[in-house]
Write a protein that binds this DNA or RNA. Sequence first.
DNA 1: GACCGCTCTGTGAACGCTAACAATGATGCA
DNA 2: TGCATCATTGTTAGCGTTCACAGAGCGGTC
Lengths: 351, 351
Amino acid sequence: MSQTAESTGPRRAPTMADVAKLAGVSHQTVSRVLSDHPNVRDTTRAEVQRAIEQLGYRRNSSARALVTRRTLTLGVVACNPTLFGPASTLFGLEEAARSEGYMVSAVTLRQYTAKALEEAIDHLSDWGVEGIVVIVPHRAAVEALAELRLPFPVVTVEGGHSLPIAGVSVDQDLGARLATGHLLAAGHRTVWHVAGPSDWLEAEARVRGWRATLEEAGVEVPPPLVGDWTPLSGYRAGQELAGRVAAGQARRSSPDVTAVFVANDQMALGVMRAFREAGLSVPGQVAIAGFDDIPEAEFFAPPLTTVRQDFAAVGKASISLLTRRLDSPGRSEAERVVIEPRLIVRSSTVS
Amino acid sequence: MSQTAESTGPRRAPTMADVAKLAGVSHQTVSRVLSDHPNVRDTTRAEVQRAIEQLGYRRNSSARALVTRRTLTLGVVACNPTLFGPASTLFGLEEAARSEGYMVSAVTLRQYTAKALEEAIDHLSDWGVEGIVVIVPHRAAVEALAELRLPFPVVTVEGGHSLPIAGVSVDQDLGARLATGHLLAAGHRTVWHVAGPSDWLEAEARVRGWRATLEEAGVEVPPPLVGDWTPLSGYRAGQELAGRVAAGQARRSSPDVTAVFVANDQMALGVMRAFREAGLSVPGQVAIAGFDDIPEAEFFAPPLTTVRQDFAAVGKASISLLTRRLDSPGRSEAERVVIEPRLIVRSSTVS
DNA sequence: GACCGCTCTGTGAACGCTAACAATGATGCA
DNA sequence: TGCATCATTGTTAGCGTTCACAGAGCGGTC
């Protein structure tokens, strides 16, 4: 009861020659039919089609790639596909690639070292990808990437603007300004910040936008706390902040904590838990804004004001940047696409 | 300032023949060095290695695949890589595949129709995958899959047990029993259930486990509510349940709502929001348990009791199942791997 | 010294496809 | 009718590997 039919033996996959013989034409004509070449008589084409279906023939991609020198495969190096951002980007990216006729192969990274990145890229090169998208918004990784002289085009996602690599990114600075400005407009004297890890480019840009907004408004800039994107680290930062609220009137060394801009929604969740445990009401005593707009954010207690990033658009854009490069290998300037984020106001900042 | 060096022109990638010429040996010897064949003199091997490095030579995977008839590529069809489960599975799976020397190419599905599934598989076949993992725990999809007679092995993830396809799954029934049993043990008269969409196999299995536990305990089985995995649908179900609590003593047609087992954490979040808005305390008036243990669950308000699934293990197991099949094509029985879930008790069920 | 067996290396032929060119027949037009 | 043109098809030669086999050289055994 094996899957192969009858007793024909192991029966190898049919080849173009088999189809040709059955249809009574040359293999080249079969090839022409498959690649939609115009100069094939309709009756011949039909005959070939029938033979193809009858045999269940499929073109051998390796043979094809060998002679055309095109594998039609794109590689992706992703940091952690469990995070909402990278996962969504990957989703949009794969769809875009498929619709342009490419296959995408992904490699995930456990560590963000130059070595791990090189290994990942090596692995992809071994399989002959025509280009890669790197979704590792980590300073060290992007710098290592810039050093590498690769024989195919590379596009980064959130790779920053300082290095000469093509890339797509959301305007993190603007996002941070939207959130911080929103809190200031609500009447808060200043806005505290729980940042992401300092070696992440996104984290850094969000700090910049937050700081600039405060400085432009001429208000005091409190020292930012630093987390690692996880709810737990947000929880720790929240405890620290709650402590300051409690100290309150007593200690006048830093401004009151009445508003916090947290660098991502997961950490904001942790911060809110800490506040809850400390008996602080949100937004009554402290207003909180996050970043990302993960699907859960709307249902947090209270629903979280946050900055939405269109990750699907990011994925799509990265593919179009990459394929554009593949089509015209001449261009070498580092093209950049920037996508605008949007502020989503919910009840964690307005009562 | 193009990426190619000097004025050597477009310069094609070096081939085995180039390496052979430089090292003063035949291409076959180069091949032997690359595949670690024992019968090569050490000095020769070193010479070849040096030539390889000097030229920056890489084996052409297409040519290799053509002659060996092995693409060393595995395909994955995933439903929605934005969900925590599939994403984590993919993560573990990719890592396992890579360590076994395979590349993985993923295709994502927007719709769960037989047609979409077939297209996805077609796409993968076109690129010559040696086998595929299907992460689409949807009844229609799995049934369609069972109909397909594919020329390569297929492994499902959460594909149910009714069909003769190899697969890996978490024991959903057990998970539901753990959660429901936990709530009964805490003294609740019965446990309500917010289920996932009925055409999802996981949802169905969780309903089964929940119902069986109640029946075995000899308590009344309330009618299950149905959501679609999203927090919003959980919110709606929560409103419905909150209404019943309010009706309370008045209406005796169904048992009191004091405990709810929700089929995933995201919906549980929605349920909790609805309860909060209705002024119901968790776990004071109603206890809630979820399923999945997403990273956020621990920081919900209150932290959520839930069932943890080891998705990384699922991914790993699916690859080992698949590669085992590739290595011994004879076996055709539908092997199944079942992974045990674990109950994580937090304060949403105990005060 | 003839023979065997072993190690190391090279030669030639696939693998299944596309590209380039050649060949055929039909058609158009002077 | 003759010649150029075009549509349609076939033939041949690779693409860069690996596999199967052959061959050279060497040491040991009887």
